[in-house]
Design a protein around this nucleic acid. Sequence first.
DNA 1: CGCCTGATTCGAAATGTGTCAAGATAGGCG
DNA 2: CGCCTATCTTGACACATTTCGAATCAGGCG
Lengths: 115, 115
Amino acid sequence: MQIVLDPVVEAPCCVLGTVDLDQAEAERIAPMFKALGDPVRLRLAALIAAGGRVCVCELTGNFDLSGPTISHHLKTLREAGLVDCERTGTWVYYWIRPESLQLLAGLLQVTGPVG
Amino acid sequence: MQIVLDPVVEAPCCVLGTVDLDQAEAERIAPMFKALGDPVRLRLAALIAAGGRVCVCELTGNFDLSGPTISHHLKTLREAGLVDCERTGTWVYYWIRPESLQLLAGLLQVTGPVG
DNA sequence: CGCCTGATTCGAAATGTGTCAAGATAGGCG
DNA sequence: CGCCTATCTTGACACATTTCGAATCAGGCG
């Protein structure tokens, strides 16, 4: 006699439940989510993603925040590995690192039925 | 004469760059990323996802943390909408809310070529 | 009811984060 | 070189977060 378990309850519903996420791995990945966990940085990432390659001066106007604050958030995104930047003359341009987004998207991917 | 733009540079590389992420929307979504932005909570989410429906008492032993601290992190995950829970007798069981993971995964999905 | 176990809430301490003003740095231009 | 603009760093402050122990709540059981 074979017992068939209810897949909704018993199986991992998503990739996150199938990876071996030990403490070291969690400490490596969590900062990426953390960087996206601030509304300002999430919008910054979206603006950069939308523009492809965006000058800081194009970003600042979208927020009621000082330049240093925007700069600080961009640094956080960069140190998390989500964006990269390059100076060109007077301006600094930022772009998304798609491989980082892909890593996170892969973890969150849902494999089972969504309730 | 038609000018053809380089799609790698000019097009959004991911869904995040195609959605209209205004401040209100960012403030709604960012807490979900924030909740996953702590190594303990990320591992908790992974353990819950792996188990399908997991008792708190099965989670605590995986960490060098007190019960109240685990409880606090679980509350954070729940308030972010990433998990839900239910009391059954003495025990409380947690499970993933796949629709929330799917929302985040969709945002991070990469549509263009990955450098 | 009274006690035990599992889980959460409360209160407090240490640490981290978001923000700004002021100052420093980098590069273009005269 | 000296000045201007764009960006980043520093220093400071208010607020949030992580963590614990102690107390509390919820439910089973004698």
